[in-house]
Computed example of a mutant assay.
Amino acid sequence: MKKTGIITILNVNNYGAELQAFALHHKLKKMGYDNEIINYLYYKNPLYKSEVKSSPLIKTSFKNKLKDLAIKWIDKYSAYRYPEIAKKRKERFFNFHKEHTALSITYKSYSDLYSAKHEYDNYIVGSDQVWNPNNGTNLEPYFLTFAPKKANKIAFASSFGVGDINESYFPKYKEWLNNLTHIGTRETSGVTLIKKITGRNVAHVVDPTLLLTKKDWESLMVPYKHEKPYILLFIFKKNRYAEELAYKIQKKTGFKIIRVCKNEMPLESDDKILNIRDFGPLEFLGLYSSASVVLTTSFHGSVFSLIFEKPFYTITPASKNNNSRQESLMKVVGLENRLLREGDTINLEKLTDIDFEYVKEKLGEQINFSIDYLKKSLK
């Protein structure tokens, strides 16, 4: 049987990254395609070995270097201060892939990946922000330049993570993009950008997490046991606007507030919010499935709100214009009013006014198109 190798972002202690990587692998398996994830460590993984060849296209600013360093030290400090939480979370993430995902040997560096002999019939670069010019690493692996020259090379839902790129980088991106046989990107802005860079018309496909149904995800999840309805707060860092909105919804509904967050997230000093920091991907799904309302700053937080049919709001920074991922998704399902900028006022009387039958219809069209794209692209 022919075999497919997938490269994407995973093993980064992030719910969205791990679940999107699993989803494409699992969907291809359900479609009858033998496949595995090429386990190339992302540069943020603590075991990744940085080298000259893995230097990023755009030099990382001192501010961003300082930010990355601070996050690493906060994470280490949190693990030291709360060792049981850190251990349990790490185990759950590790066991998720051990039990549910087929992985290749681990490639810890750029050189490891490029010196290996790869013998797949198809190569896929998967979803997430693999083409983001601001990533602090060489993006070449995510354009499949390590694959044999004549191999079938496919991009599925690969994302730039930004709406535009400085034109001085167009020549390099053109070279990389033209290495791909088939291109399907996750955002409409990505379709426009690739056309601008290469002249190629490419497919607009869904994030891999949408290739699996609500029933598929429910069959995997660890149910969350609870007695009272709750508002789920899924945010990456402290966000005053999101917290205040959660409190307003709590006052209206009487629901409690649960925040699911990463290990380095500090605990609240009061008891108004229950912080859960040790859940793995399957526990995360169970938490989503039972939520009554969701507030999120995450793209995948929006996706799982749609999959599990939860009233939600996605919150984006007022000062940034890199919200193309969320904007593209909300436009597809006609829920632009669910995308908030920090500071926006909302009418909570319309909190639950989402026509999920319409959402399923619009998503269904794009999901079917995306599956058809995969079938046509794969040998």
Rank of each mutant, 00 (worst) to 15 (best):
K3V: 03
L10S: 14
N11A: 13
N11K: 15
A21F: 00
A21M: 05
K30C: 01
M31S: 11
Y33E: 14
N39C: 10
Y40A: 06
Y43N: 15
P46T: 04
K49D: 10
V52Q: 13
L57R: 15
I58D: 10
K59P: 01
S61M: 07
K65Y: 03
K65M: 08
L69T: 05
A70V: 05
D75S: 11
S78K: 14
E84P: 01
R89C: 04
K90Q: 13
K98Q: 15
E99H: 06
A102C: 03
L103V: 03
Y107P: 09
S111H: 02
D112Q: 13
Y114L: 12
Y114A: 09
S115D: 15
A116H: 13
A116Y: 13
K117V: 12
Y123H: 12
G126I: 11
P133I: 06
G136V: 03
G136H: 07
N138D: 12
L139R: 13
P141I: 04
F143Y: 15
A151N: 09
A151R: 12
N152I: 04
N152M: 01
K153P: 05
K153C: 01
A155H: 05
F156H: 14
F160A: 11
V162W: 08
S168Y: 05
P171L: 05
K172C: 00
Y173T: 04
N179E: 12
H182C: 06
H182P: 00
G184D: 11
L193R: 12
I194Q: 09
T198G: 10
V206H: 05
T209G: 11
L210M: 15
L211Q: 12
K214Y: 05
E218D: 05
E218K: 14
S219F: 00
M221C: 03
L233C: 10
L233F: 01
K237T: 05
A242H: 01
E244W: 02
A246R: 07
A246V: 06
Q250T: 02
Q250R: 15
T253V: 02
K256M: 04
K262L: 04
E264H: 14
E264T: 07
E264V: 05
L267Q: 10
D271K: 15
I273T: 06
L274Y: 09
L274C: 07
N275Y: 10
F279T: 10
L285Q: 10
L285W: 01
A291W: 01
V293E: 06
V293P: 03
V294E: 05
T297R: 07
S298E: 08
S298L: 03
S298Y: 00
G301D: 06
S302H: 02
S302F: 00
F304Y: 06
L306G: 02
I307S: 00
P311T: 04
N323D: 14
R325T: 00
Q326A: 03
S328V: 02
L329Y: 02
M330H: 12
R338F: 01
L339P: 07
I346Q: 08
N347P: 02
T352P: 01
E357H: 06
Y358H: 08
V359N: 03
E361L: 10
E365F: 01
E365T: 13
Q366T: 05
I367D: 08
N368K: 15
L374C: 04
S377E: 08
K379N: 08
